[in-house]
C-alpha cells in the first residue's frame, strides 16, 4: 500500500495554500516571443497544447517552484520540437553557445542585435 493519493503535482485544486500573491508584472519581449512561438507552432501543426502540457507536467514540482512561467514554457516548446524532429539537441546546444558569445544582454544576443 502506498500513501500516494493518485494526484500528480500539477493537480493542485483543493489543496491548502497561503494567501494569493497579488504582485504582477508586464511581460517582457522574450516572454511574449515564447507565447507567440507556442501559438504559431500550434497553428503549423508542429505540436499541440496537450504536448505542451505533458512536457510541463513531466518537469515536476521542482521546476514549478524554481522557474518562471515562460521559462517552463520555452523548455516545453523546445522539448516538443526536438521530439518532433524539427531540430536536434546538438543543433540547439551549438546555437545556444553561439548566442552566448554574441553579447551579455538579450538585445545584444539577437542575430542582428
Amino acid at each position: 500500500m502506498s500513501d500516494w493519493n493518485g494526484r500528480r503535482w500539477h493537480d493542485m485544486g483543493g489543496q491548502a495554500a497561503g494567501p494569493v500573491p497579488m504582485e504582477g508584472h508586464d511581460f517582457a519581449l522574450w516572454e511574449k516571443r515564447v507565447d507567440a512561438l507556442m501559438v504559431v507552432c500550434g497553428k503549423k501543426g508542429l505540436f499541440t497544447v496537450d504536448g505542451l502540457r505533458r512536457a510541463l507536467e513531466d518537469m515536476g514540482e521542482d521546476a514549478f517552484e524554481r522557474y518562471s512561467y515562460y521559462e517552463r514554457w520555452i523548455a516545453a516548446v523546445n522539448q516538443n520540437l526536438i521530439e518532433a524532429g524539427v531540430y536536434s539537441l546538438e543543433e540547439l546546444a551549438t546555437r545556444m553557445n553561439e548566442i552566448a558569445a554574441r553579447g551579455p544582454t538579450y538585445a545584444e544576443a539577437q542575430r542582428n542585435g
Binding site: 512561438l37 521559462e71 520555452i74 523548455a75 543543433e91 540547439l92 546555437r95 552566448a100 544576443a109 542575430r111
Partner: peptide, 14 residues
C-alpha cells in the same frame, strides 16, 4: 542574458 532567453532565441532562429 539568461539561459532561458538564450533558449528562446535559439528555438526561434532554428
Amino acid at each position: 542574458l539568461t539561459y532561458w532567453q538564450r533558449m528562446e532565441i535559439a528555438v526561434r532562429e532554428l
